[in-house]
């Protein structure tokens, strides 16, 4: 099967929606899901399709945390730093992730595999301290288990795919 080019993928997402501005956010979410970030060409094409000024899409893209203008890693690690997790030592958990992957929250690892973010609450305080990798929760994580959890998402690991 021939891989689709980025421009083709962008067009596919955009053409899915009517050319009205109210669909912009949904289209941007699809794009984020498809590319793990919003490519600039995608925003430009979307603005044209929705007949709306580019800066207004840029405004939305910078407003919502779920949207990113910088490429993110293949797997997104969210370390909860809400009140309960904070009390249960999320700070050292963040340090642990940082040490293991050698990146700070907000960055992408050199091999493009991981993004690390801190979030304010995942809503599962009983499991504190909590780690969310992609869609999967890891509760009551200890610093010792951390490398094992992360490595399972590396290529060839049990959770990669």
């Amino acid at each position: 099967m021939v891989e689709k080019t980025e421009a083709e993928q962008i067009q596919e997402i955009i053409q899915h929606y009517p050319g009205q501005r109210r669909h912009a956010l949904a289209a941007m979410q699809d794009m984020q899901h498809c590319f793990n970030y919003l490519p600039r060409a995608g925003l430009v094409a979307l603005a044209e399709h929705m007949h709306c000024p580019l800066v207004q899409l840029y405004s939305m893209a910078t407003f919502y945390k779920a949207l990113s203008l910088k490429p993110k890693g293949r797997h997104i690690i969210k370390v909860c730093d809400g009140t309960a997790c904070h009390i249960k030592g999320s700070m050292s958990m963040i340090d642990g992730v940082q040490r293991h992957l050698k990146i700070s929250p907000g960055d992408v690892s050199a091999d493009g595999q991981f993004s690390v973010e801190t979030v304010n609450c995942l809503g599962t305080c009983a499991l504190a301290p909590v780690l969310l990798v992609d869609e999967k929760h890891f509760g009551k994580v200890t610093l010792g288990q951390l490398p094992q959890v992360i490595d399972s998402y590396k290529p060839g690991g049990g959770n990669d795919g």
Partner: peptide
């Protein structure tokens, strides 16, 4: 005009900017 500027980011980082903080083409 053409709506070449808008508020970007949010919270303490919020500011008035053009798209991609570059000289606006429109």
């Amino acid at each position: 005009g053409p709506a070449a500027i808008a508020t970007v980011m949010r919270g303490v980082d919020k500011q008035i900017q053009s798209a991609f903080a570059e000289a606006p083409t429109d």
